[in-house]
């Protein structure tokens, strides 16, 4: 059984904006029956503003939830603002997706891009490039983009995000080459920016709060403890341990081995968690 967040379950059981807008200004059709998921996104656009969005999806719970989330996110946005939405934003809107299901959020981003390209009457960028994974028809450009955007390091991660390599496995060597290529370029570029992801402090605080709420607090509460976020300064995350945790001799271990590890996994891997005393 997958561990879906409540938000994913909510958007799956009661999806919003199901349907197809007639004479839509922008239509994005991605995926296929063979691949196991497909999404048709239709947008009603007036004066460069997306006033309505509807979807039809064939796929699993996370594909349906990602589609529902996407339509909610873009409604009311100017087209150029909507174009900035990434798959990570969609996953974040849903409180996270299991890593094996990240490709569902990528499908959402691809459908959005296709719909906007259709509206603007320009060809799609990702349709170009050479097919790397023949099982799922994924091109090198798509793979490279996912590696860059989501900072992927292993073939398994690339498969989770793009499906490439999830079939016969023949392309695994080529995928590794693409990872090496992109990561070599990006380390050169990214080091001066401190950390692999560009994120505003506000975004960072929001994500840290979400992880605390969703994963960390429930675990601490089981032992009669609690945790509060005090401040975020660059990579320094200042927290205060409450309840049983405050007086627990093992609180430092909890902080480093558990809280910091979780936050590094889910937010940015350079975070340093300190206790506010």
């Amino acid at each position: 059984m997958w561990e879906y967040t409540d938000k994913v379950k909510e958007h799956f059981m009661n999806p919003l904006n199901v349907g197809e807008i007639e004479n839509a200004e922008g239509t994005g059709d991605v995926g296929s029956l063979a691949c196991g998921d497909a999404l048709k996104l239709t947008l009603k656009i007036v004066d460069d503003i997306i006033v309505d969005a509807q979807f039809k999806t064939f796929g699993c719970a996370s594909a349906i939830a990602s589609s529902s989330a996407l339509t909610e996110m873009v409604k009311g946005l100017p087209v150029d603002e909507a174009a900035k939405i990434t798959n990570e934003d969609i996953a974040q809107f849903l409180g996270g997706l299991p890593k094996e299901k990240m490709h569902c959020s990528v499908m959402g981003r691809e459908a959005l891009e296709a719909a906007i390209a259709n509206y603007k009457g320009v060809p799609l960028r990702v349709a170009e490039g050479d097919v790397v994974c023949e099982c799922f028809g994924v091109t090198d450009l798509e793979v490279k983009r996912a590696i860059q955007e989501s900072n992927l390091h292993t073939v398994e991660e690339v498969t989770n995000f793009t499906k490439a390599g999830g079939g016969c496995g023949k392309c695994h060597d080529r995928l590794q080459e693409l990872i090496d290529e992109v990561q070599k370029d990006s380390t050169a570029k990214i080091i001066p920016m401190k950390g692999p992801k560009r994120m505003t402090t506000l975004q960072k605080i929001k994500m840290i709060e979400e992880v605390l709420e969703r994963e960390i607090r429930p675990v601490l509460k089981k032992d009669g403890g609690d945790i509060e976020l005090v401040d975020v300064d660059g990579d320094y995350v200042l927290v205060s341990l409450r309840g049983a945790c405050g007086s627990c001799a093992k609180s430092q271990t909890t902080l480093k081995e558990y809280v910091e590890k979780k936050l590094r996994e889910q937010v940015i891997d350079t975070l340093i968690v300190e206790e506010d005393k």
Partner: peptide, 11 residues
């Protein structure tokens, strides 16, 4: 027997 239930990507 769907792909999505198995954790793999193929049915």
């Amino acid at each position: 027997g769907s792909a999505c239930t198995s954790g793999s990507l193929e049915p």
